[in-house]
Design a binder for these strands. Sequence first.
DNA 1: GCGTATATATATCAGAATGATATATATAAT
DNA 2: ATTATATATATCATTCTGATATATATACGC
Lengths: 186, 186
Amino acid sequence: MQKETLCLGLLSLGPRSGYEIKQMFEGPLSDFYSLSFGTIYPTLNNLQADKYVSCKQHSQSKKPDKKVYTITKKGMDLMKDNLLGDASSYIRSGNFGDQIKSEFFLLLLFSKYIPNETMNTVLNERVLYLRQKLEQFKYDGPVPGNLDAIRNEKSVSFIRGLASALIETGLNYMEKNRHLLKKKIN
Amino acid sequence: MQKETLCLGLLSLGPRSGYEIKQMFEGPLSDFYSLSFGTIYPTLNNLQADKYVSCKQHSQSKKPDKKVYTITKKGMDLMKDNLLGDASSYIRSGNFGDQIKSEFFLLLLFSKYIPNETMNTVLNERVLYLRQKLEQFKYDGPVPGNLDAIRNEKSVSFIRGLASALIETGLNYMEKNRHLLKKKIN
DNA sequence: GCGTATATATATCAGAATGATATATATAAT
DNA sequence: ATTATATATATCATTCTGATATATATACGC
């Protein structure tokens, strides 16, 4: 997805700064997508120059000014156009589409070069990590204010439910089949 | 995973050319990782310069020479060292770790800006696509010769089983919950 | 009270990776 | 006969990341 469409999409949920957009990528979106500061800030500047967003500078004593961006009518139109135009090309992406870089799967692929004890530790930690992820997706309590908008999106409950179901399946599979990765002789 | 470790890992399954390594990324590995020609060819050249791989040139009348690379003892050692050294850092990657770029999930996130009929078509095509993927992972018949080595890896049956289980869960969830993405009024 | 770590906030840039293109030929399909 | 696809390597502009710079505030342990 184009970085412009993505930034506009997040701004459509409410006005926010570049820093807060980054927080979304590190919080609720971290499992699906990410953009770096080096992409976010220039993108916002370009979107502003082309009037797709407006910007209000909030001076905060001695911190750098917080630049809060608001999507314009022109920006909403561009976002909707882009989403509609590219919708069909996103059908074949994501789990299991063409954008995953799973280093964990590569590690499994080459697991025969790794001692059994090491793989055991790795798999144990992987299970712990996935359990943690699962709790994260199931957690339904309060979230920091700037992440509230995304949490309240109806589509997000669909996505969180799907992610939970996938992780549960992965955990069950791992518990039942991890013995297949063991080498007979070390 | 470092591109060097990855290329060495694939060459550890048997000698092959850069073109054939790319074929692995477009075939059985396409759902987990990918490297472009622009990365593969320079990497192989560097690995050769440092004696981690050796190279035999097979002239083929008028096509460019096919350069078949073979991993050396030095290369096997480097690969194993790298795998062991980095193993713990791969635990938190992949579904659902930190490397997924799921444009499909982003599309769902912004689905409220897309007409119900369009989303319906998109979800239908997604289901067809996932069914196709599922068949691919479950297919157990013969594969082209250069992809045989990877198919015969014991770890690959573990990975294919996991992928199949995940896709099945995703399909079931989608069928049962897709109504949640529908907007009440269009 | 003092140092350390973390959080807020924007900006920039070297290095890395991709996606496209160039080159050249063979083969299969229409 | 023409078009498309496959084999095979190589290069490069554009893009993106990850790191770093800058500046301040707050929280935490000792």
